[in-house]
Nucleic acid binder design. Structure first.
Lengths: 231, 231
DNA sequence: CGAACAATTGATCCTCATCAAACCTTGTGG
DNA sequence: CCACAAGGTTTGATGAGGATCAATTGTTCG
């Protein structure tokens, strides 16, 4: 046994699972560790395993024919990813999962999860809940991309990330560890534009930025940029 | 009883349901008919009902604060929509559903579907399959919007629509009934740009366009525009 | 200290959105 | 059956918002 099965309770899909279920899942999983920048799987690979990130950080991304990439989602500890194989047979991953730092994950055969869900409706429902939240988030981001200006999109991305994975600094501000490139991929723009916008914000005292780092000094100001209607 | 329950088998989520299940669902449903342009529900309404479109055509859309709207999905006959209430309690619809012509739908209490799924894993799985296909489609469209040029996006939208709801004309071409405005909402641009692009395509013999109408004469040409890597 | 990588900044250009005006198409009422 | 209204479409002119490219300046780490 590699990890404490009870820790799996933190995974939203397993929140209602019994202790026995968690044991089973942990027993059927194998642990994979991945270096910074390496991939758990690539877009198009057969979706044999479903993953739970047990340490580190990763991102789900898609690439188009020219190699430009889009960041679909950032994966934090105890989040599930690559789970669609548990639903469709012979599915292929629709996106690639890349580690953003050294990371470990529990890989469970999608088949096995499928089997479990047959007799445990709560698992199926919790997975569906997760799916609906993805659908909603993607719909929202799609709308933003289609209708909102870059500055606002960047503000939103920052706020979303703050909620998901902001770290409080000793002086009460919130810090995020992202490169300009990563922020650009998340908000659908280029690192140059992100850099320019952040410089402007820094002048206004909204943020302080450094190498692979953004400290948010005035979240309310960002909310205002993200929300205010066109004047 | 309003509709033939067995017709519900055409709904992808109900494909594996028993005849009895279909009866139950039909009995618990009420039929709603909606005029062209009216709404089944609005974004933010409590998601009490899940719908199956039984006739007509509708669209799912989101609006931002300034009233600009984005078309998320076109709903055809025997497709389900507004089903997320069956998964989360007290959920609100994340989008609005507007009839594009006079339409009718079977409205089933989301609660009831939820109850059914507790004891019928196949229903839950078929709903999950539907959800994964939405997630995939939204991810793909998001990537397109973030990385592809307008012309290509319009070509893709047209091809997607062709697959979903193209009607063969007597002379073997494929016809779509959409206004420029609708195509613009689908592909994330403006009706002006759509109009220009289509004029250009018409010169090249790829399409013939009319009022609320596009006939595709050369699907292969469109595929080429949609796929070819940047030269 | 130097190499590698991240970020900044300026200059330029291109794609599209926007606005305005005219034109078509379809349906309606006198 | 014609005239007109309503709504969809086209086309042109203009400009803004960002992408792209290039050059320079941090920052971090071995």
């Amino acid at each position: 046994m590699l990890i404490d099965p009870l820790k799996l309770r933190q995974v939203s899909v397993f929140q209602n699972a019994t202790d026995d279920d968690l044991d089973l899942i942990a027993q059927h999983g194998i642990e994979r560790s991945i270096e910074d920048g390496e991939f758990f799987f690539f877009q198009g690979d057969p979706a044999i395993y479903s993953y739970v990130l047990t340490a580190g950080r990763a991102k789900l991304m898609q690439m188009n024919a020219n190699g430009q990439q889009v960041n679909l989602r950032t994966i934090n500890e105890w989040q599930m990813f690559g789970a669609l194989g548990a639903v469709r047979e012979n599915a292929a991953y629709p996106a690639s999962a890349q580690a953003m730092e050294y990371s470990t994950a529990l890989a469970v055969k999608s088949e096995y999860l499928h089997e479990l869900m047959q007799t445990r409706p709560y698992l199926a429902f919790d997975l569906m809940k997760l799916m609906t939240s993805y659908i909603q988030e993607m719909q929202e981001r799609y709308r933003e991309l289609a209708t909102e200006k870059v500055e606002r999109r960047i503000a939103r991305a920052l706020l979303r990330l703050t909620a998901q994975m902001g770290i409080k600094t000793p002086d009460g501000h919130i810090e995020l560890a992202f490169t300009r490139q990563e922020l650009a991929e998340i908000s659908g723009t280029t690192l140059f534009t992100v850099s320019r916008v952040m410089s402007e914000w820094e002048k206004q005292g909204l943020v302080v930025s450094g190498r692979e780092r953004v400290v948010i000094r005035n979240p309310h100001g960002l909310v205002q940029i993200a929300e205010e209607s066109k004047e």
